[in-house]
Design a binder for these strands. Structure first.
Lengths: 248, 248
DNA sequence: ACAAAAGTGTTTAACCTACACCCATGC
DNA sequence: GCATGGGTGTAGGTTAAACACTTTTGT
């Protein structure tokens, strides 16, 4: 079956189940071997890559839709997921989808609500669904050409994420359950694109007082063993309530 | 003509001109006599007040729709207008609009994109359109009961605006073309809900170096005449480019 | 002249940065 | 034991808050 027939088939279900004109795009960030990664998919019939996305059930909260879409793509639950902007240009899909018949679901004009997620790279298994041919991590340094306005959406997500990172310690969401301060610092340096003072970074992070210090260390590498930390939900929530030093 | 007949009439146009399921709500802030104000409307047939809103033309950018809606309500153009969040609960209009026939435009499920605007109170003339019975400024301290989830939308806008205010000098958008530092400080104190140090406030603001200092002063009041300032677009844009000290 | 508001200057403390030092581990 | 990475301490500088002082105006 060619993809047009397939899309026509799926179109019927989509019109039945989902709200027209509204879509969701997820920018899923991961971190692996000192590189920031983004999860991209390739739709059948498309040359360019795109963001994993989906639609909103007729009786579904948009946040729930985002959670569902993310889970269907990665199996991940309870990750950091935040809405950051709605995209409502006209002609967003003009150049990439105009080869499809007009009646097809995808040819609608969509207002897309962007969410970005921070996930543990190791815990995710990218899922290729029936309307796509690939779902892979791509390094942000060597992103392939992207369809529609997905590049813009990605950039807006990155900017938003960087901004948040500057004001709230959200970075650990990209790391495994247990991590070391050097790990965390590498991640911050990668995302922010600049080196940070090692000793001060450590102090600043620990000053947030939202980490659990483990007794064990990570053995194996040469040189001194770094201390393992994990994230303390309870303390973090408490810290958020009293404000995380973002005020006059 | 009762409002149901009217709505049925308008419904047809709306279905023809606008994208279904997508709406826009504007939280318009103004500042008058040391009080922060919000522009509210009352829809025909509704007991409670609501935010001025509208819909997105089938071939219109959502930002343009927001600008158009704001202009139609206030006559204001070129004001500070920013998208801050999309609201996509289910049953948003359940309790307030369920008395209307289901076929009516307003009974759709809407995903609403929230924008907030900062306008010069003096320059605005609230406009009552044909589907509403009132359009008035209300003090944020004594807001009336609001329809649907508009209270939540307002609160999200306020929070967002406060946050921005902490990091970027956007407050002057609420003042007339020419204003004094004491004016600006009163405004900040009102919005943030706490007193600020007078001398330090002045220094901090002037340090941004985005204001034009006028030679004249405001005469009339008792005591020393304050210096008039206005906002310097050019310097502000330049400052934004080099970054407004929000970084590591 | 005086009171009150606006504008400017000065002291002080908190904070961040840079750097030095110590510790632990594998070779 | 020594090279290297990890963790802690400390001095110096920057910035902002707190307060004092001066200037200006209307009464």
């Amino acid at each position: 079956m060619d993809e047009i027939s397939l899309f026509e088939e799926r179109s019927k279900e989509f019109y039945k189940d989902y709200l027209p004109h509204v879509s969701i795009d997820c920018v899923v960030f991961g971190f692996h071997s000192n590189t920031l990664k983004v999860l991209l998919i390739r739709m059948k019939g498309q040359e360019h890559w795109g963001l994993p996305g989906g639609y909103v059930g007729k009786d579904e909260h948009i946040d729930d839709a985002a959670i569902r879409i993310l889970k269907s793509r990665t199996g991940a639950e309870k990750v950091f997921l935040e809405q950051f902007k709605a995209f409502g240009n006209t002609g967003r899909s003009e150049k990439d989808l105009s080869y499809l018949p007009e009646s097809i679901w995808f040819r609608q004009r969509f207002i897309s609500v962007g969410y970005y997620a921070l996930v543990d790279y190791e815990q995710i298994i990218p899922v290729v669904d029936d309307i796509s041919t690939a779902c892979e991590w791509k390094s942000v340094h060597e992103l392939p050409a992207m369809m529609m306005d997905h590049r813009q959406i990605y950039e807006a997500a990155l900017e938003n994420m960087r901004f948040q990172l500057n004001y709230k310690p959200i970075g650990y969401n990209l790391l495994p359950e247990e991590f070391t301060m050097p790990d965390l610092q590498k991640l911050y340096e990668t995302i922010l694109g600049k080196p940070l003072s090692r000793s001060n970074f450590q102090r600043k992070m620990l000053a947030y007082d939202i980490f659990i210090k483990h007794d064990k260390e990570r053995k194996g590498g040469a040189h001194r063993s770094p201390i393992l930390y994990s994230f303390d939900q309870v303390k973090y929530q408490a810290a958020l309530k009293t404000g995380l030093k973002e005020a006059w």
